[in-house]
Amino acid sequence: MALEAGKQAPDFSLNTTPDQRVSLRDFRGRNVVLAFYPADWSPVCSDQLPIYSELMPEFRKLGAEVLGISVDGVWCHLAFAKHRNLRFPLLSDFEPKGGIARTYDVYRKGEGVSERALFVIDREGMIRWSYVSPIGVNPGADGILEALEGLSQGRKP
């Protein structure tokens, strides 16, 4: 059962390139869309992430950054992000494998990959929406957009 709305999002610090690390706390003050996906290059992921990439201007308008995360290594992420022209970082949940997926309760032990799971985390680091898609189904972006819009409406000026 994935962590649900109302819980504090567990912090993490993961490599996005061989010499760059990204931590959740770096994004305090911004909303974060954390997109767990099973694997670089798989057909469904290859459709899912480019849609988020196209929507970066909309996400930014809603005060949000996007982070993709899978158990693939940094070199694999680099090649995949380049091939797909992704405009957001991919985090490598590689060592210990799936460690962060486990803290969000979205690790599939049998397969050794994460669920296809989405988390919208607010400016204070609180999970405000989460969704686990059937592993072979691309969840698209409608749920994320709605969740982010809910956050910006509820925000005091």
Binding site: D47, Q48, I51, L55, E58, V137, G140, L145
Partner: peptide, 13 residues
Amino acid sequence: DFLSGARSGVNGT
């Protein structure tokens, strides 16, 4: 068009 698709749950082409 693209945004209407994103809002409608388009998840690939």
